[in-house]
Design a protein around this nucleic acid. Structure first.
Lengths: 378, 378
DNA sequence: GTGATTAGTGAATCGTACA
DNA sequence: ATGTACGATTCACTAATCA
């Protein structure tokens, strides 16, 4: 299991990416059943699958299968367990295809409510997907429970999964932290439901009963994809995924059975404008910045050999040597290694542990690294 | 499906109630495996089962905080299962017994995390339990994600179920509405984790690694039981369920294998006094004031990425980026941080410093925050 | 006594690259 | 596959200690 925060690993193989892209129906909505549609997609070609599967089983009344066909209650013996079985089979079918088309470091998102999410979650675990987080979309303006018989159903649940326990995945930690005012983004997201100008309407009626807010997709795509990534949505509906993907400079593919939804989605996405380059840029993680060896600071004169460096509490003071190593008496090591050994700690980030004096001020040696980076950039 | 808000239906048969009570081990902690222990309980005799089963965390190696200190993880033997299959079998076994001992109008609560709750949810649906709500416990003070690899895991999930789709159940709608400042109680509860004086400690160490906050049980018992009801907890631990039940005038039965936990629970419940009405209101967590990140305005479309923002005198103009950060050339930062840096000031309130144009008018970005709050407000 | 500072901790599926 | 080096990373709250 691993985390890649840069686009480098994907950028390394532009040819392969392009080659695949040619075969992929980018920017298209595939007509028909999503399992059939996904069969036309090459294995290991998709970066992200976002799925908002239906859960409109009408228990107790007329029964419809997830594909819309009607169950004949007269000829079929029917009960709650049969409907679970049909739903589970349907779920397993589309999840298997989703897993096949995803790249080894691709990811899956599914959204659902308590009616279906526990079945979906258990099945995707059985198929080998590895849950990274479950996310609660906390609705700021939910429908009240009019009859006063239960708690107000004020949230939905999203599951974010990698291909497996050991699989790599992508998480834009820094972008999420920036988006959340410099605090780690939590697993509960407070967002309004979709209404107002964003809600698609035709003749005063909503086009789709469960249109998701664009803010939700915005956060999903910003957190777990990079520019140019390919996002597939097997239950495209009115195309929220496509609209936000286009805006954020991601490629998209949809699957949708209903003509009405496909038409509305295409019209909607057509109007959407991609953000320009500068707006799309996000704060980068430290690890995507170029690596600097401490020795480079020494040999370029940013830190002179012989300089004394010390921890914040001045429990230890070490001397910088010409090769960029540190020494306290006979004890020597790298900025990380010596800090680790002195503290008896399992690890140590030497850049923030060691300090030096410059112009009467005490600064972490990381400050020198920043100066060096500024000087090198030009 | 029906709702009983009064105690009348139970009061109708006082004789039957009393007769059963005599056979039940009220106020006792049954030793040993909970499935065995529940077998000694008569069928249809329990009003509520609250269960906090092992989560099957499957942790890898050690985890250290950025400061090098060690995270005291849940590595107890009782949380270890070799496979999903074994965990599922274990889950099915205790759920079957729980269903048997519950009255026809009794209810089940289970708490879990994403590691186990999807399996538990699917299995209890398979057994015929009917989910009434899933409740999200949003932790006000969760442990951060120290490595920056995922979203902060900031919640746990509770499932509230009746005996079946058509089964009756009890819900104290009025009590919940009162507890929530005359607003319907929602499916997301903000409560702090258990620490401070409430956390049981022995020799400076926590007695139980996963002790639940009493406020959580308080809300569970107050919403779905009446005075005198019998509550059974198959994974009693250090007896939070028993303590709160006693305080609220409910009868309780526990099951627990570990001597240490049983002893601690008995001592704890012994000290517990039934609560007078006045304390009722002090248990709830205050409603948190809404705090808005600038990124929330961006992802919700109140401020578009690419928008230009500027200070009042237009000395500086910055561009809003997709993650809610601002950029002027190569200089970037949060609304507060960039404003601070540009002015060379010790701090800066970005909300009032930066302005934007909307409808030909120049407004501080705080105006957009007010619009957002209006849209989000309950 | 009071406010400021420091230390500790909580159900956590918590790295990557190269030799 | 296994080991080693390098590198990146924390929020809210409580309790204890210090000024």
């Amino acid at each position: 299991m691993a985390v890649l925060e840069t686009t480098k690993p994907r950028a390394k193989a532009p040819a392969r990416q392009k080659q695949l892209s040619v075969e992929l129906p980018l920017g298209q909505i595939l007509d028909g059943d999503c399992v059939e549609a996904m069969r036309s997609i090459p294995s290991g070609s998709i970066d992200l699958v976002f799925a908002d599967p239906p859960y409109n089983l009408q228990l107790g009344g007329d029964l419809n299968r997830p594909d819309g066909s009607h169950v004949d209650a007269v000829t079929d013996h029917w009960d709650q367990f049969d409907s679970f079985k049909i739903y589970d089979d349907f779920t397993r079918d589309w999840l298997i295809e989703a897993k096949r088309i995803l790249k080894p470091d691709g990811a899956l998102w599914v959204i659902g409510s308590y009616h279906n999410i526990y079945r979906v979650g258990a099945i995707l675990q059985d198929l080998g997907f590895w849950i990274l987080n479950d996310i609660v979309w906390r609705k700021s303006n939910p429908m009240p429970n009019f009859r006063g018989t239960r708690f107000t159903n004020a949230h939905e649940t999203l599951l974010w999964c990698s291909q497996g326990e050991k699989a790599k995945y992508h998480f834009n930690y820094r972008a999420m932290k920036t988006l959340n005012d410099e605090l780690q983004m939590r697993s509960d997201w407070v967002l309004p439901i979709c209404n107002g100008a964003e809600r698609l309407k035709e003749g005063g009626h909503k086009v789709h009963p469960t249109q998701k807010p664009e803010a939700l997709l915005y956060r999903v795509l910003l957190s777990t994809t990079e520019r140019g990534d390919v996002v597939l949505d097997p239950f495209f509906g009115t195309g929220t995924t496509g609209a936000v993907a286009k805006r954020l400079g991601r490629e998209w593919i949809g699957c949708e059975r209903e003509n009405v939804y496909r038409d509305a989605a295409l019209k909607r996405i057509e109007k959407e404008l991609p953000l320009d380059e500068s707006a799309l840029t996000t704060m980068q993680a430290g690890r995507s910045a170029p690596k600097v060896a401490f020795g480079a600071l020494v040999e370029n004169g940013f830190i002179a050999p012989g300089t004394e460096v010390f921890d914040k509490k001045r429990r230890w003071t070490a001397t910088v040597r010409a090769d960029g190593s540190l020494a306290i008496g006979k004890q020597t090591g790298s900025i990380h290694g010596l800090g680790k050994d002195l503290q008896g700690a399992p690890s140590c980030n030497g850049w923030t542990f060691w300090h030096y004096e410059a112009g009467g001020e005490v600064k972490p040696i990381d400050a020198a690294r920043q100066l060096y980076l500024l000087a090198v950039e030009d």
